[in-house]
């Protein structure tokens, strides 16, 4: 019964009319880690998450949570905590009532609502207010409280950091870190690289309905090569080529596929003064990400 991965998604595809929101998405998410699901707006993140929790039926492929179809889980709220849209709350219900209803549906006592209010830092006065009066940050906290109500092993959160201030993001990171350290699985989506970088250990990058990169955050960030800028771009290009180092030019700098030391030696051998030399770091991921975003905006213009 126990699955090796908390979440397994294979070959998911979903179209709306002529628009294919999710083309072919496969990935696994493991226990004990925070996995970021990163992609520009419209990349297919939300549709994938909705298919994962049984709100949308895929055209093909399948999604399994804790080894089973989400819709087959008994009392799913006790196993998977879900936050898809913090603003999707009845504006006339109080914050506490939202949690009390959730607790009731999961077969939990009403005092569970109060425990969660304390966890997300909504005070008694705020809990008595109707959610229509809440700021986006408060709604996110309420939504995260709702996701945690049933003491689940898996959390699926769509853009949970959206609307949180820096303090709130720090709080969210601490909370998810502890959740993962206790063996829980977190899958959270975001369209902001910086945000995910802060919170997640593992990354799945999605663009135009496909997974374009995935792995440990360090790996994805480290495998970027070296950024180098020299006194003369032409001479530097020749020097890198002479040393057999592949490089792509961006402006007057180069992204070289080698360690900084090798790059510096090649430049020295070619007699070029190095003005800038650093590991590409997030740049590769960022450029990948920017490219995805640019592709998508072109697509939008064409349509």
């Amino acid at each position: 019964m126990s699955a090796s991965h908390a979440i397994e998604v294979s070959g998911l595809r979903r179209s709306y009319g002529s628009h294919t929101a999710v083309r072919d998405v496969s990935f696994q998410v493991r226990h004990g880690a925070v996995t970021g699901f990163l992609g520009p707006n419209g990349a297919g993140k939300s549709t994938t998450l909705r298919m994962l929790v049984g709100l949308t039926t895929p055209d093909s492929g399948q999604a399994r949570v804790l080894g089973s179809d989400y819709r087959a889980l008994p009392n799913p709220g006790r196993h998977v905590g879900v936050l898809l849209d913090a603003s999707a709350q009845h504006s006339g219900r109080t914050g506490r009532e939202v949690l009390a209803l959730g607790a009731m549906a999961m077969g939990l006592p009403p005092r569970r609502a109060d425990e969660l209010l304390e966890v997300v830092g909504l005070d008694a006065d705020e809990a008595r207010r109707r959610t229509g009066t809440y700021s986006l940050g408060m709604r996110q906290r309420l939504g995260i409280a709702h996701a945690l109500l049933g003491d689940p092993r898996v959390l699926v959160l769509d853009e949970p950091a959206n609307g949180l201030d820096p303090g709130g993001i720090h709080w969210l990171r601490t909370l998810l870190r502890e959740f993962a350290d206790r063996g829980g699985c977190v899958l959270l989506s975001s369209h902001l690289l910086r945000e995910v970088e802060v919170i997640a250990d593992l990354l799945i990058v999605i663009g135009r309905g496909r997974v374009v990169a995935q792995g440990a955050k360090q790996e994805l960030l480290a495998a970027g090569g070296t950024v180098v800028r020299g006194s003369d771009a032409g001479t530097l290009a020749a020097a890198l080529a002479a040393a057999g180092i592949a490089a792509t030019r961006t402006g007057d700098a180069f992204l070289a596929q080698a360690e900084p030391e090798q790059v510096a030696r090649a430049a020295a051998a070619g007699g070029v003064v190095v003005l800038e030399l650093r590991p590409a770091g997030t740049d590769r991921l960022e450029s990948l990400f920017l490219q995805l975003t640019a592709d998508d905006s072109r697509e939008t213009v064409r349509r």
Binding site: L66, A72, L73, P74, N75, R78
Partner: peptide, 9 residues
Amino acid sequence: APLAGPAGV
């Protein structure tokens, strides 16, 4: 909560 049992609520 048990993972086996009738689906849903």
